[in-house]
Design a protein around this nucleic acid. Sequence first.
DNA 1: TTGAAAGCGATACCAT
DNA 2: ATGGTATCGCTTTCAA
Lengths: 327, 327
Amino acid sequence: MTNQKQIASGLGISAATVSNALAGKGRVSKDLADRIAAKATELGYVPSAAGRALKTGRSGILGLVMPDITQPVFPDFAHAVEGEADKCGLGVLIANSRGGEDGQASAIKALIQRGVDGIIVVPHRGTSPIITEVPSVVVSTPSDPNSIVSANHRQGGRLAATALLELGHRHFLLIGDDPLSPVQMDRIDGMAEALTGVGTFEIMWTSRGFPDLVEKHGAGVSAILTVSDLLALRVITEAARLGLRCPDAISVIGFDDLPLAKAVRPTLTSIVPDTAELSRRSVACLNAILSQNGQDVRRSIVDFTIAHRESTGPASPLNRNPTRRKQ
Amino acid sequence: MTNQKQIASGLGISAATVSNALAGKGRVSKDLADRIAAKATELGYVPSAAGRALKTGRSGILGLVMPDITQPVFPDFAHAVEGEADKCGLGVLIANSRGGEDGQASAIKALIQRGVDGIIVVPHRGTSPIITEVPSVVVSTPSDPNSIVSANHRQGGRLAATALLELGHRHFLLIGDDPLSPVQMDRIDGMAEALTGVGTFEIMWTSRGFPDLVEKHGAGVSAILTVSDLLALRVITEAARLGLRCPDAISVIGFDDLPLAKAVRPTLTSIVPDTAELSRRSVACLNAILSQNGQDVRRSIVDFTIAHRESTGPASPLNRNPTRRKQ
DNA sequence: TTGAAAGCGATACCAT
DNA sequence: ATGGTATCGCTTTCAA
């Protein structure tokens, strides 16, 4: 590994000048700077990250802690964070908060020991880690007071509900996997909020058994709102085998806009998270803190959008009358 | 940030002793070592990664370059690599080879500048990058001569084919997305290899249009082998709307065992990659090189396994006779 | 068993 | 415009 000293001695100059030239601060004559640059590439010089980090006190690396990069959405977020960080000249060190709060804590600790300049953490299941050693940005839901950047799951839920209201649906089934998940709860809450007073709805959790779709349909339900694309897909396929075609008999809407949403027939109408924006704000916020411009660390909330596809359609006239059923 | 010197002066001893004690090399008296450890935790000492890296010439960080962490399987691999690296006391810096070979090259360069000790690279689309600056492990297919750790896509293809042969199927449709993908080609090749002489088959690529499933079924096809779960899912849902039930009318098999394989109805029979083993070998190999035990850098190939689920079933007696159709 | 001191590579202050 | 030099925190010989 060549270092600045070797470039310097190769040119018969001082190491300090080499540093100045390479830093491009303009303290060196254009001529010498060029020769230094030439020599550097000639020797294949690569600046030592360790040397620089030791002197400057900054590693140029930020840590990313997520519950499980295997879960949907997280890979996209990681990808986007890496892209944004790269634009800022920062690297991203990943760490998995394997199972539970302890894993999260030790993952954070490990990152700090590796000398990261800051940490972006997507907290594990409603936990709200506080990091004191380095600047950090918590990416969670608006209901978490420590969350700096949040995905507006309630708004996403409202979006799903209003989209189907506009299509004329009035009787809904809301399905989640797990009532203990704050994210799922927020989504369901948002749906319920938008529906209250305008339509009838029932909330079901698959952890307590899969709903009887035929019965629900017979009772007037024409639209099903789910908390995930996977769940929406399951509903559609289950319905299909029972003879209920989507979107003719029932409209179904998913969440997260996974790749599968475009791969299945009918394609899935889905509520799509703005991962790009989430990552942008997370990195920007952390970068601002790192650049001493720590003043604008205001919380921000990122909305979902909707992708209309084939799994949702207009309600049949039969189901349009809200007075047919009690609220 | 407290450092060793502060611990030393706080205890009225030398910094060297602190270093020795904390390194646990046993050169220090048990008693003193304990007091040093106590003082360290008291002061909240965190060793400086930069200082250590500068001195030892090793950062304890390895880079992971992948085409697109958004694509299926890659997140799992990244996750597994991070886990394995963690066991070895190594961190993982991720980098995306955004679009094409250039992005890959610059991603690798960026990692080197960040001072990684080694790089694991999953090459972009059949490229075969050669890294000279640091030790590296290429994770690709057996057909790539530079690949150190390979996933045996051909074997996976054979596995899919033989599984359906054993169920009595004889007339097959092989579907891929893109004939330019080496991975997909290997999988298809493996299928064709296992089928040749035992059954009839046709290969189709969705990039040239989606096959007419009704026509194929009418022509005797009872099993469809795909190169991905997403494609399998599309086939199943498309077939369902055409009145072809899976697995009664046709058996369908996917690849990669994505989470969705267990979430849809019918659940997907799928060829599952051993990401854990792939990552284990990748990290182990790199770690061996880093530990100077560079001798055993033998290439290794990791086989796929199969997860039998609901999307495949026995062929109906009608389709069992191979003589009904020409080879 | 413990300490003194050199040095890893880059940077920034202070001279010249 | 350029050079000398101290310094960041840690490790590692060599001495005591």
